[in-house]
Design a protein around this nucleic acid. Structure first.
Length: 404
RNA sequence: GGAGGGGUGGCCGAGCGGUCAAUGGCAGCAGACUGUAAAUCUGCCGGGUUUCACCCUACGUUGGUUCAAAUCCAACCCCCUCCA
């Protein structure tokens, strides 16, 4: 499909599009002039993770294509606690925690989007502003009548649960109504005519466009991204250690860079398109690299992706650390450190650097030859390390012992 | 309400009186091979320690039988299937 709007052409070429409610009409609207679009984000944690990055990049492209992005923080919905996909009720956060999380998350968005008061400057807003003001009876009379239970039951999120006879609470059932109302509110306040999100949000988004049509008689659109998976089928960004955080307080620059550097060969092109701003012809060139050459492309991916999220200086420093550490077998400046006043055993060093959770685990590393001091296998548990020496666990985890 | 089946380590899933910290698979960690990749092969894989050993905690919950229980019994909780 050929799009006439810069916005959809970009998204399409880069692999962001899964479904659109009315692609031709959205394309026409985006070609005609600036549109306003939003994506909603959870604020249960002080940082977002890689899983949110596709949406963030989409907002970035939106703005670059001359449109206005709205970032909706789910402050109100967080207070309710979205139970989907969870076995236990989420720990409910109080206002103060939510405010702190929002402030922290905003700093991430400021790297990807330009905020301000201009016509295409990004806006961040908390849906608690309107959700907590709602009154049940008026709300049900004004909006509840537009939602058909018959239809809500056909949405995957509900239908699958019912078919599997899994419990679905009334609270959860209402979640999609709140989200639909968010969209309506944004349509009224900002003239927002597009909601974007992951493919799992399709049902919620369609509910919003329907509500806007019924209440306001206006057309609004929805667009979802595909679920991004890795070449081996695993969900993107879920490592055994947990989420890959965007915020540096949660994950050091070097580790963030390394995450991207360790991308599977088969994913390099896809990730370059989704997670960097590099021109497509440049990406095509990098993607075509074969054999060990593809490592160049991975380094570019890592540096570009890190530059977006953490700043170019941090990205270049991480790249340099990786180069000296891996290519030269040395030790770069970004490696984690453990300060000690006097030499300690390799066991304590591994624990101090966070490479082993217990002495038992550290001993296993030594026994299996995975623990190295300045690149040489430690040999025994009693080997000593002092300031200035590099300690490694396996091939990818390296750290420095420093005086202190 | 009646009948039957089941709840096991991060997940799936064996075991059904001692030799069980519990087969196997997945995930994870480490090693070899490589390109800081994939695939493959090997080892580790509940926790701890003074580690060729020892000590804790574990098989839904609580009691009981037994020299000895994940395995038998009872009660309870939860899940599933069939009948009403």
């Amino acid at each position: 499909m050929t799009h006439s709007s810069d916005f959809l052409r970009r998204l399409d070429a880069r692999g962001f599009i899964h479904q659109i409610t009315d692609a031709a009409a959205l394309d026409a609207a985006a070609a005609k002039g600036p549109i306003t679009a939003y994506v909603g984000f959870d604020c249960t944690a002080p940082s977002l993770h890689i899983g949110n990055l596709v949406s963030i990049m989409m907002l970035r492209h939106l703005q670059q294509a001359g449109h206005r992005p709205i970032v909706v923080m789910g402050g109100g919905t967080t207070k309710i606690g979205d139970p989907s996909g969870k076995d236990e009720a989420r720990q409910l956060l109080d206002d103060e925690q939510i405010r702190a999380n929002m402030a922290s998350i905003r700093r991430i968005f400021e790297r990807f989007l330009r905020f301000g008061d201009g016509p295409t400057d990004a806006v961040m807003i908390n849906n608690d502003e309107w959700l907590s003001q709602l009154q049940l009876v008026p709300f049900l009379r004004d909006y509840g009548r537009h939602f058909s239970i018959n239809r809500m039951l056909t949405f995957d999120s509900v239908r699958l649960r019912l078919e599997r006879e899994q419990p679905l609470s009334f609270l959860e059932f209402n979640y999609m109504i709140f989200q639909a109302y968010d969209y309506l509110e944004l349509n009224r306040r900002f003239g927002c005519t597009l909601q974007m999100g992951g493919s799992d949000q399709w049902g919620n988004i369609v509910n919003g466009t329907d509500l806007i049509r019924r209440v306001e008689g206006r057309e609004a659109f929805g667009l979802t991204t595909p679920l991004i998976t890795r070449a081996d089928g695993a969900k993107m960004g879920k490592t055994a250690k947990g989420a890959v955080w965007l915020h540096e307080d949660q994950l050091p620059h070097f580790d963030y860079w390394q995450f991207w550097r360790n991308t599977h060969d088969a994913d390099v092109g896809k990730f370059l398109r989704l997670f960097t701003d590099l021109p497509l012809d440049e990406i095509a060139r990098l993607e075509a690299l074969a054999g060990a050459e593809i490592n160049t492309a991975k380094a570019v991916l890592a540096t570009e992706a890190t530059a977006l999220c953490r700043g170019r200086d941090a990205a270049l420093a991480a790249a340099e650390t990786a180069r000296t550490t891996f290519a030269e077998g040395g030790a770069g400046e970004d490696l984690p450190t453990h300060a000690v006043p006097a030499p300690i055993t390799i066991i304590d060093a591994l624990i101090g650097l966070g490479f082993a959770a217990s002495k038992n685990e550290a001993r296993k590393l030594v026994a299996q030859g995975g623990a190295r001091i300045d690149g040489v296998a430690a040999g025994s548990d009693t080997a000593m390390v002092g300031p200035g020496q590099k300690v490694s666990a396996g091939k990818k985890r390296h750290g420095m012992i420093v005086a202190g």
